[in-house]
Design a protein around this nucleic acid. Structure first.
Length: 208
DNA sequence: CGTAAGATTCACT
DNA sequence: GTGAATCTTACGA
């Protein structure tokens, strides 16, 4: 595994761009000296700064979403009910865009992940709350810089870039607002995506 | 202070 | 497909 940590400039772009470029990259969590968990990112969603009612940043900075307003290349972890969800902050300071990591394919530490999830491999990382459980991601990682060398959490580039024709695009999942925005991206024909794309699409949506 | 809603998951019908 | 679990944050009174 190459250890080329993605630099801040990689994240300093539009969330929708970063979301697609993150597909196929590896999410690495150094839990301890002995344990490193790695998952390949197979599904993401972009959340914009403005004009996106579903984004936490829409109503401005709050205690919960303050990490979104940091510079690109930071982690934004928050709790939803009893689960944690992990994002990477994009764009520049003051532009609170982020990319939610929705699904991973287990790469390293699979046995540990199985125990954490109490399930088999196919059910480890196919959901934003699930992958956080599997990779031991929690609120202690909120707001950390994931581009520095000693960061416990970071992302490295994938072995092969995912071609555009192999990227699926759809509405985002689990939100009640701004459902018309096509900001969910996933690697086609990957078994670890969270769920089937929504069937309720607006007429004329030329995706999927 | 009370209440409602939520970027989810799981069990059940 | 539907609904409950479960809990923190946000917001209005």
């Amino acid at each position: 595994m190459q250890e080329k940590i993605l630099p801040r400039k990689f994240y300093a772009k539009d969330p929708a761009i970063v979301a697609q470029k993150l597909l196929g990259a590896y999410l690495v969590h150094k839990v301890s000296k002995k344990l490193t968990l790695i998952g390949k990112i197979v599904e993401t969603e972009a959340y914009l700064h403005k004009d996106d009612l579903a984004s936490h940043s829409f109503k401005g900075e709050t205690k919960r979403n303050k990490s979104m307003f940091k510079d690109a290349g930071h982690a934004y972890v928050y709790t939803l009910r009893q689960y944690s969800l992990v994002n990477v902050v994009t764009d520049r300071i003051g532009i609170a865009g982020a990319v939610l990591i929705r699904a991973i394919e287990p790469v390293q530490g699979i046995e540990v992940m199985k125990k954490l999830r109490k399930t088999e491999e196919f059910n480890i990382g196919n959901g934003p709350g699930k992958l956080c459980q599997a990779m031991m991601i929690n609120m202690s990682l909120d707001g950390i810089d994931i581009t520095v060398k000693n960061s416990p959490l970071y992302i490295v580039k994938g072995k092969e870039s995912v071609k555009a024709k192999n990227i699926g695009i759809s509405s985002r999942i689990g939100i009640s607002k701004s459902q018309d925005l096509q900001l969910r991206f996933w690697i086609k024909e990957n078994e670890h995506v969270s769920k089937h794309p929504k069937l309720t699409r607006k007429k004329g949506a030329n995706n999927i």
